[in-house]
Design a protein around this nucleic acid. Structure first.
Ligand code: FES
Ligand code: FES
Lengths: 133, 133
DNA sequence: CTATATTCCTATTAAACCGATAGGAATAAT
DNA sequence: ATTATTCCTATCGGTTTAATAGGAATATAG
């Protein structure tokens, strides 16, 4: 339970890889080979990281992806949310009106608290922390 | 991401329902109707809760399930683990030898910490807390 | 002893999700 | 023009999940 998808694990490995490049471009293929990730699959992942503003990209020859932020400024939560979207232990944490039991839904506070605990942990660790172990 | 399965949510609702019964027996069907859970599906869930020692059961007429512990003594982690087994954000948190990157696996500490954060939250909230909101 | 109500067990189904692949369009350098 | 890359969409096979089905074991009631 609460397993982290391969996609997210790949994203984290790719980001640690890019972090070592200190702003230089690396292609999707290079990262895939360095980190042992299916190349074509990684393409989609890198695109999501870009949409989230965590990396920058350039097309064509000499293109690739590069890190635009300092690894210490990238929260692990940023990476996770870039890939998976907002964390929702149950669908109703965002929309109380979905609660089958109405406004008096008892477990709701519990789930909201769980989300806060997970978000909290992920937000207080940066890519730099993880890349350095 | 980190979504809680329907099975676990059902289990929690069923436990809060039983908690209100103060030790009296309730049948699987009664709980299902009270909590709006597919009856036949709930049977398997109740059985797991029993195996975990969280409830007691009696077969035949007048049978059913009953709470044997004080709700304040039941950690939410107990319920979650009864249904889902140990929480593992990544498979290698339990077995470091599985780490694709060997002993020097950098993200490992991060995942172990995440598990600790989730387990911690779930262990410091009891069924009583949740049942009362 | 029979009928009934329940837990208990196993198998099966339908749908959703996930990891991965395929094929190509757009774009930039050579 | 050729080549190398990001970008986009579709699809496939496998796994998981929610739910159902059917019945064996067991206890109570009459
Ligand atoms: S119904 Fe899920 S928190 Fe209310
Ligand atoms: S390979 Fe997963 S934590 Fe090491």
């Amino acid at each position: 339970m609460f397993t982290v998808s391969a996609k997210t694990q790949y994203a984290i490995r790719a980001m640690t890889c890019l972090a070592k490049m200190e702003g230089r471009y690396a292609t999707s293929l290079e990262i895939a080979q360095a980190e042992n990730i299916p190349a074509k699959y990684l393409e989609g992942i890198m695109r999501r990281l870009k949409v989230a503003g965590l990396v920058d990209s350039e097309r064509g020859k000499k293109g690739g992806y590069r890190m635009v932020l300092d690894p210490s400024a990238i929260k692990m939560l940023d990476i996770v949310e870039a890939i998976e979207g907002r964390i929702k232990p149950v669908t109703c944490v965002d929309k109380a009106e979905l609660c089958s039991m109405g406004a008096a839904c008892l477990p709701r506070r519990f789930w909201v608290g769980l989300k806060a605990a997970i978000d909290g942990y992920l937000a207080e660790h940066t890519l730099k922390d993880v890349a350095e172990g």
